[in-house]
């Protein structure tokens, strides 16, 4: 129900990672969603894609992994190393 807010939090976290890894571009972020986290994976995917489309963070993919309990964690981030700009 609050998947848009969750998508915002994920994108903010990705942005923080981008800042602390200069020279890299985030391409995919993985989240783990527990059965009792109160977050629907499909709905989160929809919100995430809608927010990324046309933004400076595009292209960025969301990978959703199912988990137990009420976990709601960012598991990992895939970073592409950019060529040094002359």
């Amino acid at each position: 129900m609050h998947e848009m807010g969750i998508a915002c939090s994920i994108l903010e976290a990705v942005e923080r990672e981008r800042i602390i890894h200069p020279g890299c571009r985030p391409t995919k972020v993985a989240v783990r969603i527990g059965r009792f986290a109160g977050v629907d994976g499909d709905s989160l995917q929809f919100c995430f894609d809608a927010m990324v489309a046309g933004s400076s963070q595009a292209p960025l993919e969301l990978h959703v992994e199912a988990a137990e309990n009420d976990e709601l964690d960012i598991a990992w981030l895939e970073l592409d190393e950019l060529e040094a700009i002359q």
Partner: peptide
């Protein structure tokens, strides 16, 4: 490059 984060979304 995969960068582990392991942090709560919130």
């Amino acid at each position: 490059m995969i960068h582990p984060i392991e942090r709560k979304v919130l």
